[in-house]
């Protein structure tokens, strides 16, 4: 078991969470909590795979995944922004709806055979950097590289641009934003769409790049929910979201790989400092406890995030969860 390989695969898995988490972060920054991430990811994963098989072109699959998930997110936008219904229940129903639709339309896809995947390549020169090169820049999917570019762009957009300022205004104090002539409703629709589109991209990243295929609801296995949790841990900051996403990706990989070898060998170069029998190999039932880890860690990460938020008096966008009703008092 080579630690570098685990980290390398962890970065790839983390990319899925990265897209979903930052997408949800955009929606929440505009004041709309969307718990439908899991459903939108399933829609994205299913459509990406289905279209890629039908047309032979994975990029067309990615495009349709983004549009389909973005489109279904607009149901949530309509219900919560225009009809002003509860965001929690509406988001939940979107998860049900997305899962149901993707299972129905994805019928038979799991046996559909091979599909051409998104390209994988190494970045010349950068691979030579010790540790960082092999982990981040060797034989990764193009989606992983897009992810790297995406993190600073998202941060810059939210914190340093005018549209980003409008986004924050709409999420913190919509009445004031409205008074300044910002169209609160339209912006919220737009950022819910962005959240959906990125969840769709995350889904496409699963089914066409990181763990190819369509395994019905097991395709996402709760990653959409972990993404929702990571947004809280990240305190609505894309840089922290990226750290969380990659850490969770590595954890998921570690759990998959740790049960394989018969011995653990800890080595730096030729110097071996650890050699022990792998307890997870000799006690395969311990694997069930390993499976709990990502979910348990999500809870732990939430505890840390919530404590920190209380201490620093940081927190969610002030208007998160509240519909904006023009002419009514309050946020």
């Amino acid at each position: 078991m080579d630690f570098i390989i685990i980290l390398q695969a962890g970065v790839a898995t983390g990319t899925i969470l990265l897209f979903a988490t930052i997408g949800e972060l955009f929606a929440e920054r505009s004041g709309v909590l969307n718990l439908g991430v899991e459903g939108m990811m399933l829609i994205g994963a299913m459509f990406a795979f289905k279209i890629a098989i039908a047309t032979g072109n994975p990029w067309l699959g990615v495009l349709v995944a983004i549009l389909a998930a973005g489109l279904i997110s607009q149901i949530h936008a309509f219900i919560t922004i225009t009809l002003q219904a509860d965001q929690v229940v509406s988001g939940l129903s979107l998860t049900f709806l997305g899962a149901g639709i993707s299972v129905v339309l994805g019928e038979g896809l799991s046996k559909a055979g091979t599909v051409s995947l998104l390209p994988q390549f190494s970045i010349p020169l950068l691979t030579k950097i010790p540790l960082i090169g092999p982990v981040f820049f060797t034989e990764q999917s193009i989606m992983v590289y897009i992810g790297y570019l995406f993190i600073p762009l998202a941060w810059f957009y939210i914190n340093r641009t005018r549209p980003g300022m409008h986004l924050r205004a709409v999420g913190e104090f919509p009445a004031a934003a409205d008074a300044l002539g910002i169209n609160v409703y339209r912006l919220r629709y737009f950022y819910v769409f962005v959240g959906g589109a990125l969840a769709g991209l995350a889904g496409a990243t699963i089914s066409l790049a990181i763990s190819p295929g369509w395994f019905s609801e097991l395709t996402t296995a709760g990653m959409g929910w972990i993404a929702v949790g990571l947004v809280i841990f990240a305190q609505w900051n894309p840089i922290r979201a990226a750290f969380g996403a990659y850490a969770f990706g590595a954890l998921r990989r570690l759990i998959l790989d740790i049960q394989g070898p018969t011995v653990f060998i800890g080595a730096i170069g030729n110097f071996t400092f650890l050699e022990m029998r792998n307890p997870f190999y000799y006690n395969p039932y311990w694997g069930f406890f390993l499976q709990m880890l990502p979910y348990a860690f999500t809870i732990i990460v939430l505890v840390i995030g919530s404590r920190e938020a209380m201490r620093k008096r940081l927190g969610a966008p002030a208007a998160l969860g509240n519909p904006y009703i023009r002419g009514e008092r309050g946020l």
Binding site: F96, L97, A99, G100, I101
Partner: peptide, 9 residues
Amino acid sequence: KMIQGIILV
């Protein structure tokens, strides 16, 4: 499952 989702929505 899909019908349940649609009903809830």
